Amino acid sequence: MGSLFEELEAREVAARTRVEALETELAELSGQLDLARESLERLRIARETVAEVLAEMTSEKSAMAVDADLPTVGDPVASAYAGVERRVIGVLTVPNWQPGIGADVLPQVYRDILEVVADAPGPIRAKQIVPRIGLPAETGKIEGARAKLKRLVERGWLDEDTPGMFTPARRRTANSPNSL
């Protein structure tokens, strides 16, 4: 019987060694995953910041020259750096709503959001919109949708009368009693 216990003990030692090696590998991979997530988050923030800056530059340009065409992909854009020119490459912008402008000027995800809000029977939250536009109901997706909703409110496409509750924008005209 002594040899059976020795064999079990040897197998236990081998299993413990394998578990420790896997735990070490898991710790290393976990650290790499954390670094990759941080890098991804920095890139996402940078992309959103650049898109917002370019959108502001576009709105400032259109405010100075109302009839001027907005830049399109590949058009030169004036730069804050003397003598330097840069090109707009695939930037998704959300223009300010104005009479006569349709949702077709918006990127697809914003059109989807507007459609969900319009179809809702009443005010709707970001966490209710996310699954309806085909995204998983994860915190990151909800926060991204909330940022898009806030941008649509800021630019006149939606209203947010109660914090976090979004409705289609009530359009005010010069003849309406509620005009500002």
Rank of each mutant, 00 (worst) to 15 (best):
G83V: 10
E48I: 05
L106M: 07
N96Y: 07
R86L: 15
P121V: 05
S39Y: 11
R16A: 10
D119Y: 04
P76H: 01
I101H: 02
V88C: 09
E60H: 03
A80F: 06
V84F: 02
T17H: 03
V19H: 01
S62A: 12
V117R: 04
E115I: 04
V53F: 13
P76A: 15
M57T: 05
E20G: 04
Q108D: 12
T93S: 07
I89F: 04
P76K: 05
L106V: 13
A120M: 05
E38D: 11
V19S: 02
R125V: 06
V66I: 12
R11K: 11
T49W: 04
R44N: 15
T72A: 13
V91G: 01
A103H: 08
R11Y: 03
A68S: 11
A63K: 05
E23I: 08
S79F: 00
R47Y: 05
L29V: 11
E38Q: 13
T17L: 00
A51V: 03
A36F: 03
Y81D: 09
L26Q: 13
V84Q: 08
A10I: 00
P71V: 06
V53E: 12
V116Y: 00
S62Q: 11
D112M: 06
V91H: 08
L33Y: 12
I45Q: 14
S79P: 02
D104V: 09
A78W: 04
A126W: 04
A14Q: 05
T93F: 03
T72D: 06
A126M: 01
A120T: 03
R125P: 02
R44F: 04
L43C: 07
V116D: 00
L22N: 13
T72S: 12
E115S: 13
V50L: 15
G100N: 02
E41S: 12
V105H: 01
E23Y: 02
E115V: 05
L26Y: 11
G74W: 07
A10Y: 00
V94F: 04
R125Y: 10
L114N: 02
P107F: 12
R47D: 14
P107N: 08
A103Y: 08
D69G: 06
D75L: 05
A80K: 10
P76C: 10
R18L: 15
